[in-house]
Simulated scan of single mutants.
Amino acid sequence: MPRIILTALTRAIPLVIGAVSGAVSSAGATEGIADKYPQSVLYNKPVQVTQHVFSAIGATAPPTYENAGHNNNLSFIVTGDGVIVVNSGANVALSRALHDEIKTVTDQPVRLVINENGQGHAMLGNKYWVDQGIDVLAHVDAAHEFEDRSFQAVEGMKRYARENGADTEAALPTITFEDSYAIDMGDLHIDVLHLGPAHSPGDISVWIAQEGIVIAGDIAFHERMPPIFSDTCTSCWIETWDTKFEPLGASYVIPGHGHPTTMDVVRAGTEGYLTYLRGKIGAHLEDGGTLDDAYYVDQSPYANLDTYEELATKNAGVVYTEMEFE
């Protein structure tokens, strides 16, 4: 059993309670709070989750000026012989702010940055670290995704982040891998894993077996509705979950968005939601339903999740298009 800092866990994990018949209720969602840490550009001050792992929990709302684009989780691992950062954030200002927080925890240098996928909030802060000669690691598909979309990602971020995005330029990962990447640093063995297709190209999870914790990235959600993109294969995501992700046997999960929690909770919010929505769309298709009507299939058991209003109808349309010719 890993040695857990219980006081930190108490602050960091307001568990999502209950998952009955697909329903999920959230005790820690934060869409209505503009900023929890006004003295920093970070949305939240990092909290210690396990002996070696800390995470600054982002807003579960869409990116805004008030949250500076910190709407995902920016984590770091203090290994004993250096620090590994997971996600560089949506701009250089967030990377710099996270680095300032790291320096209050340890004098160990940052030795590596890991991007959880190719989205802007994982990679747009890369330049801050690359300029200091620090390698940035990502899956090869995530690197390609970011390279293709980096201009739009930078411009979109600058529109909402304003002065917080002023110094940000796209910087690609310096190291890429395909299946897995093993790191032995200090007291820890860490596996960076591409488990299979999930939320977006190149999704990875960071697994620290000796502490029973997985920094899951966007394979796992619970307080925020999972976004389903046009290139997301939801049946593949469920298969990756059932055959590769959940069998890790993690005791603690830091999802891509939302507070650290347990595998049972993220199962309900992710695999449970995907299975539920596919079931509703499948029944709609069997009844001869159209795309226009598919947008309005019942997703009310998940209406309490942050970004429900922004994503529910879009998700239904994408899954209809995916399943129409399965």
Rank of each mutant, 00 (worst) to 15 (best):
L172H: 06
G89I: 03
I281M: 13
P46M: 12
D141R: 13
S230G: 11
F325I: 01
E145M: 03
T168K: 03
R278H: 06
C233M: 14
L311G: 11
T313S: 06
I33T: 14
A294V: 04
I254C: 06
P14L: 08
G165P: 09
V105W: 06
I102D: 02
T176F: 07
K158Y: 02
Q48L: 05
Q39L: 08
P247L: 00
T313H: 10
K103N: 10
V318P: 15
S235F: 04
V86C: 12
A138R: 05
A166W: 07
I208R: 09
T275D: 02
D203Q: 13
A122W: 04
P62F: 07
A209L: 06
E66C: 04
S88T: 07
V319D: 03
K314S: 11
S230F: 01
L291S: 13
Q39R: 11
D191V: 01
I17M: 15
I213T: 00
I33F: 12
I5G: 05
T270M: 10
E178W: 05
I57A: 03
I238Y: 09
D35H: 14
Q299H: 01
D179K: 15
A142Q: 08
E324W: 09
T240L: 02
N87Q: 03
I5E: 04
Q210T: 15
Y296Q: 15
C236M: 08
T174Q: 02
I204D: 04
I215S: 11
V47N: 01
V20S: 07
G186N: 14
D306Q: 12
V83L: 05
A182N: 10
I228V: 15
T176S: 08
G156I: 03
L195T: 02
F245V: 06
R159E: 09
E324I: 08
H222Y: 00
D292W: 01
V192C: 10
P2K: 11
K45F: 00
A29F: 02
E286D: 15
R159Q: 10
N91P: 02
G133M: 11
D298I: 00
P38V: 04
P62V: 11
Q48V: 02
E31T: 01
H284P: 08
F151M: 13
L15M: 10
D306E: 14
A19E: 14
G133A: 12
G317A: 13
G22Q: 10
W237G: 13
M1E: 11
Y295S: 09
T64S: 14
A93L: 13
V297N: 13
G58Y: 03
